[in-house]
């Protein structure tokens, strides 16, 4: 596979906190060994993430969107080190995470990031009191010593996310979904991280509660200067929260750009299709281009551009050659038609 033109330096003015380069992850999804031998089945690999590159400037929010199974969560897990990359690298403040060998080298870096998951219940230990859940990163990283100091800090964290210090005595099941997500956020903030990876943090919540959490996340970002990698399939949420947005399709980052530009002037045919598909609360009555087809299996993605079977602009080259990332404005697009200048302007302004 050819080299991708890596973007030069930080994408915006300001320092790059996280840099992802040519990142790839392949899973072995073969049938069990014995079945393979007996039935003569070959090994099967699934490329969940393929050659993904982007930068996140400090203090900003970079979101990944895309349909289920496109690889968003896998990127999130690679970035926080829950998976080892099959290819490429993740650099945090200029340090290549794969080069770090020992726990001791990792520890000071490790406390600089945290993760919030979709299901606030599954990610909180039901047998622990909330105070212990929130205190866990403080104890793990040895940030404070002494029961009283930790208790005080936990109380502050709970109040920071809109709960009461007294809530520390309760157990997770005594809280609603939105309150549990606040607890996850308090825990994530406990190690005083610079960077938080949020994987669908509001997808399990009702809209009124989602609004509370999104407002909270924005307030914390302003007050604490946090950087977010935000993952969601909800484009309106992403529009609302992001500075930069990347669109994934079958493991590849097909386009990324400034959030407002991406939504007002989408380049990639898939981005256009996604934007066209979402129902419109504004009831503008705009005409839609119907989109056919479904996302193909990631085990055997179409050759060339993975989107070619559904793309109205596909040609011979699209069916055989993988499009490379092309710099467009502040962002990048992977599409032959964009590169060849044969893509019509999007219909809606």
């Amino acid at each position: 596979m050819a080299e991708v033109a890596a973007p030069q330096g930080p994408v915006a003015t300001g320092e790059t906190l996280l840099s992802v380069r040519d990142l790839g992850k392949t899973f072995d999804v073969s049938a069990p060994f014995l079945n393979r031998v007996l039935q003569g089945q070959p090994r099967v690999h699934l490329t969940a993430v393929d050659d993904v590159s982007f930068d996140i400037p400090r203090g900003s929010t970079f979101s990944l969107v895309g349909e289920s199974g496109c690889g968003k969560s896998t990127v999130a897990r690679l970035v926080v080190g829950l998976y080892r990359p099959s290819q490429g690298r993740v650099e945090f403040e200029g340090t290549d995470l794969a080069r770090i060998q020992t726990r001791r080298q990792m520890a000071p870096l490790r406390r600089k990031w945290a993760m919030i998951f979709q299901d606030p219940y599954a990610s909180l230990n039901p047998r622990w009191r909330v105070a212990d859940i929130v205190a866990e990163p403080i104890r793990y990283h040895g940030l404070l010593s002494g029961g009283q100091a930790i208790r005080t800090r936990v109380g502050e964290l709970l109040e920071l996310v809109g709960l009461s210090a007294l809530d520390g005595e309760k157990y997770p099941h005594e809280f609603s979904g939105g309150q549990r997500q606040r607890i996850s956020i308090a825990r994530a903030l406990a190690s005083e991280p610079d960077f938080i990876v949020c994987d669908e943090p509001t997808s399990a919540l009702d809209v009124s509660v989602q609004a509370q959490i999104l407002n909270l996340m924005k307030r914390l970002q302003r007050e604490l200067g946090l950087t977010y990698l935000f993952i969601s399939h909800d484009l309106a949420v992403v529009y609302h929260i992001s500075d930069y947005v990347g669109v994934m399709y079958l493991g590849r980052l097909v386009e990324w750009s400034d959030a407002r530009l991406l939504f007002s002037n989408p380049r990639h045919p898939y981005t256009r299709m996604l934007l066209d598909a979402i129902p419109d609360l504004e009831m503008s009555g705009r005409a839609r281009t119907p989109v056919g087809g479904e996302v193909p299996s990631p085990i055997a993605p179409p050759a060339g551009c993975h989107f070619n079977p559904r793309c109205p602009f596909a040609d011979e080259r699209c069916r055989s050659e993988t499009p490379m990332a092309l710099k467009v404005g502040v962002g990048e697009v992977r599409c032959h038609a964009v590169e060849e200048g044969r893509l019509p302007e999007p219909e809606s302004a």
């Binding site: 609603s176 979904g177 939105g178 309150q179 009702d206 809209v207 009124s208 509660v209 989602q210 609004a211 509370q212 999104l214 407002n215 924005k218 909800d234 484009l235 309106a236 949420v237 529009y239 609302h240 929260i241 939504f263 007002s264 934007l275 979402i278 609360l281 504004e282």
Partner: peptide, 23 residues
């Protein structure tokens, strides 16, 4: 409150309307 709580594409990036508490 519900309508104000829903983020919309093209809307402002300002804070969403917040209804306190939950159902």
């Amino acid at each position: 409150g519900l309508m104000g709580a829903i983020p919309t594409i093209g809307g402002t990036h300002e804070d969403l309307v917040q209804i306190k508490g939950s159902m």
